[in-house]
Design a protein around this nucleic acid. Structure first.
Lengths: 192, 192
DNA sequence: CCAATTTTGTACCTTGAATTCAAGAATCCC
DNA sequence: GGGATTCTTGAATTCAAGGTACAAAATTGG
């Protein structure tokens, strides 16, 4: 059967995600990865075909975690409006402060690879789509129980919230201006 | 006095902007630049100190053009609300279709260099700030003449619109879904 | 026209990125 | 335990990025 792996591939993907998220695809070198994953180059290329393939797994890994986190917030008990607000507010919360300057790995990927790597773009697209659907579900729930104006198009509102979230991650990555983020959240929440 | 330059440095910066905008900083090589600017390496490094310096000029060039374009739309005659809508709608308009998949060079730069190149980040920051101020001015105008609810915080609304614009450029770069962009515009314009 | 000065393109250099490979080590099966 | 197999390690390889040096050519003031 041969020698068995001396490391956990899933943990390696998680570590790679961390690096790619912070540095982007192009700026992350195999040497960086070897250092962060704590394995040799041979193991790296033996387990993951190449840098691009590992990046794909990292991006997927990132997406699952982020979508799950958003869904978790949106599924908490309480009024739908508060849950939507919490989903936005999370982007400006103190507990995510250390992540803020990384921006969103999906946005980063689209910005860096958009138009040149359709596969990566497609992964990000599906991440954003799932997030938007989760937002829409919460909005529709709020409309059903009268918290939100049922006359509005839930899909439209979900698109707006998703767009707002994306814009907020850009602002967050640019400089840690928490107040500005809160201002955006307040603006949109007082409108819907 | 010696020989004078055989090319127009401003035109060269414009060409470099085009390249950097499409490919990003890291993915653009000196060879690419030499090809696009139509000059030799000697002239390139003689006129612009290095790749990073040229990128800085390109980013500035981009910012001036974009801010001016936004201000131009916002200063057109007619009701303030229509002008704000036009500013957003422009991002989904047919005449900007060929630019859409490039995304916003500011967003691209923040995504790629944010946290690693404070100077570049600062330039982008100032671009976005000027845009947001222009939006705020138009909003305040709309509030003064009764088109927009004067009870709302204009600064907050401007932040929201700016954030929406940033998010829209991300969506646009990901895939040319014009309808989704229109949906976002409609959503935000029907709320304010 | 001459000298000074600058441009220009090519050739060259250095560094590091991305990947491959050879040799050794661990594992299982018989 | 021997052999087949798969993993690990780190050195070797390849290639291009980013920039420098240089010599030839061109332009201007005097």
């Amino acid at each position: 059967m041969g020698r068995l792996k001396q490391f956990d591939p899933e943990a390696a993907v998680a570590a790679a995600t961390d690096l790619f998220w912070r540095q982007g695809y192009g700026a992350t070198t195999p040497a960086d990865l070897v250092g962060a994953l704590g394995i040799g180059k041979g193991s790296l290329y033996n387990t993951f075909d190449n840098k691009r393939a590992l990046f794909g797994e990292a991006l997927r890994h990132y997406g699952e975690a982020r979508v799950a986190a958003l869904v978790a917030v949106l599924n908490r008990p309480g009024p739908a409006r508060a849950r939507l607000q919490a989903a936005l507010e999370r982007l400006a919360a103190p507990e995510t402060a250390h992540l803020r300057r990384r921006g969103c790995m999906g946005v980063n990927t689209v910005a860096e690879l958009g138009g040149r790597d359709e596969a990566a773009t497609a992964i990000v697209h599906s991440i954003f789509e799932r997030m938007e659907r989760a937002l829409q579900a919460a909005i529709e729930e709020g409309q059903r129980n009268g918290e939100l104006d049922a006359g509005r198009d839930a899909r439209e509102l979900a698109s707006l919230l998703m767009t707002t979230i994306l814009g907020m991650t850009v602002i967050a990555k640019m400089s840690d201006r928490t107040e500005q983020l809160h201002r955006v959240v307040h603006a949109v929440m007082s409108l819907i």
